[in-house]
Computed example of a mutant assay.
Amino acid sequence: MLSPPEAASVGHHRTPNPAPAPAAGPAPASAAGPAPDPAAGLAPNPVAGPAPAPVGGPAPNPVAGLAPGLVAGPVPVPVTGLTAHGPVPVRAAVGRRVVAWAVDFALVLVAAYLLALLTFHRIAELLTDVPGLSALGGWELLGADGDARHRAGQLALSLWQQAVLLVVEAFVLLVMGTFVYHWAALALTGRTLGKKLLGLGVTPRTGRAAVLRAAVTTVTDVGCFALACCLLVAGALVMAVAVWALAVALFWANALAALSPRGRTLADRIAGTCVVRIPPPGGEHPARRPHH
């Protein structure tokens, strides 16, 4: 047992108890900026950008701007030219369309040539077998005096009118045949013979689009020119020239529209169609962005 002086000396040199440590918690935020990150021990980078990849871990996602574990939603898919229904149709090149049109127009010219041969043959038969001349006897012609010229004039006028009617019939058949050819080809197969040879097609393939496109194509390629020729044969020279000028304007307005960025002719715009490439059976063509 210690004496009182020794106890006082020991109590004087005893180490005081340490103060309790403050509770762990986040450091108070500074008024000048965000609080330091307790996990990293550094203040966050004030400049927005992707977080650095940890050593040995995956690279940050360049689309979301965050580390892969922090992406909250789906990553956006870049545009590849594909739709939910497959590849977007590729617009047809102008050169292919010109060659396809030339093939189809060659068929029209062949039909016009055949109709011209048939019409000239019918006119020749009309001149060689005139009912009025066969019924008019020689004595009647000699005794008719001046009235014979009047009757001959009437007969010539009748022959001319019949010949004009035959020519008009030929042009009407040509126009109708051109329309039926384009309409039937588009409605049944979605392309004419020329487009099929060049690997082209018309979309969408609907009955309304086939009728409208066939009608506009027939008018611009054949119809107006046929009307001008009929007016010329009928003797309406001024009207024939005016219609011919209109036919030329409509033809080039329809054709030059294919050179526009959208590549749609006047017939395409009215019918709501577009000429596209058709891949061969079993083949694939590259997908591109759609042309609106």
Results as ranks from 00 to 15, higher is better:
P4Q: 11
E6Y: 05
A7F: 13
N17G: 12
P18S: 06
A19P: 14
P22D: 09
A23M: 02
A32Q: 11
D37V: 11
A39Y: 06
G41N: 03
L42R: 15
N45H: 07
A48G: 08
G49Q: 06
V55S: 06
P58Y: 09
A64K: 08
A72V: 08
A72S: 13
V75K: 05
P76W: 12
L82Y: 15
L82Q: 12
A84V: 10
P87T: 07
R91Y: 01
A92E: 10
V103G: 03
V103S: 04
A116F: 12
T119I: 01
R122I: 00
I123H: 00
A124T: 10
V130Q: 09
L133C: 04
G146I: 03
R151G: 06
G153I: 03
S158C: 00
V164Q: 09
L166S: 07
V167K: 00
F171P: 00
L173S: 04
V175C: 09
G177W: 13
F179G: 04
T203P: 00
T206S: 15
A215N: 07
V222L: 10
G223N: 07
C229W: 13
C230M: 15
L232D: 05
A234P: 00
A234R: 07
V238L: 11
A240S: 15
L246D: 00
V248W: 06
L250D: 00
F251C: 08
N254C: 02
A255C: 05
L259W: 13
P261H: 05
D268Q: 09
G272V: 04
C274K: 09
V276K: 01
R277P: 00
G282V: 11
P286F: 05
P286D: 05
R288D: 08
H292M: 00
